[in-house]
């Protein structure tokens, strides 16, 4: 496979992708023969019960993990063929990540936390200018010099979002971004994500349990036991929620 980007309308393509781990109780199949496509500019929610493979799916999308079978093509690049260094460069230039816990560095301010994410690749001056703009965009213009300990949970997550958008990556992945937030803050964050997705023409993939979040998606991919449940849409998502009882 060529390392060059493949012209494609798809932001992400999974072709019969499987991922398994050796655990103490035997082999754990996190994903089994997953085939899916996510179009550019699309908002996709990945739902499913805990342990269904949501995080694994996201990790595979950006090359943080490698499939044990199948092929992952992200933004036109087959990640299977990329070396570690190339994957690192790929993530630095093309992917933004939002985590349930933003894992901000406690010794740095909000602005500094945003800047350090891309520090190895770009000049500090450029990064500071862009980070300031992003923090304003996420509504933290008055909190730029605050350390994480002085920020609320929602504010910390906004810092995480600003950090993810630094460098204008075309693909934004969010893994349970509202897991630690209350409803109101969740709604605010979802609104913010939608707004930013539109402003920056992002492809947004959200792994979530939260129906508020999944409700904001164009499409839902529902995972159960490491496989994609047919008819991935809002209804399926609702049906496949943990409360539906068909979790692993």
């Amino acid at each position: 496979m060529s390392l060059a980007a493949i012209e494609s309308d798809q932001a992400v393509e999974f072709r019969d992708v499987s991922r398994s781990y050796d655990g103490s109780t035997g082999t754990i199949h996190a994903l089994r023969d997953v085939t899916l496509s996510i179009g550019r500019g699309e908002i996709v929610a990945v739902t499913g019960p805990s342990g269904s493979g949501k995080t694994t799916l996201l990790n595979l999308m950006i090359g943080l993990d490698r499939p044990t079978a199948g092929e992952v093509i992200t933004l036109g690049r087959s990640l299977n063929a990329l070396r570690e260094r190339q994957l690192t460069a790929f993530r630095a230039g093309s992917v933004g990540l939002v985590f349930q816990d933003p894992h901000l560095l406690p010794g740095l301010t909000a602005l500094e936390n945003v800047v350090v994410a891309r520090l190895p690749w770009r000049s500090r001056r450029e990064l500071v200018t862009e980070a300031r703009a992003l923090l304003v965009a996420v509504g933290l213009d008055a909190r730029m010099d605050f350390p994480p300990a002085k920020l609320s949970g929602g504010e910390r997550q906004r810092v995480g979002v600003a950090r993810a958008l630094l460098g204008s990556p075309p693909l934004l992945l969010a893994d349970e971004p509202t897991g630690n937030l209350d409803d109101e803050t969740t709604q605010d964050l979802v609104a913010l994500l939608r707004e930013l997705q539109e402003r920056f023409s992002l492809t947004l993939v959200l792994a979530t349990h939260d129906q508020t979040v999944s409700g904001a998606a164009d499409r839902i991919v529902h995972l159960v036991g490491g496989t994609v449940r047919d008819g991935s849409d809002h209804e399926v998502a609702a049906m496949g929620s943990p409360s539906a009882g068909d979790v692993l």
């Binding site: 520090l119 500071v128 350390p147």
Partner: peptide
């Protein structure tokens, strides 16, 4: 929550400085 104070941001220029 940890102890911290608000201060002027001065992003570090390199990994070593960080």
């Amino acid at each position: 929550r940890g102890r911290a104070r608000v201060r002027r941001s001065r992003p570090p220029g390199s990994a070593a400085l960080l």
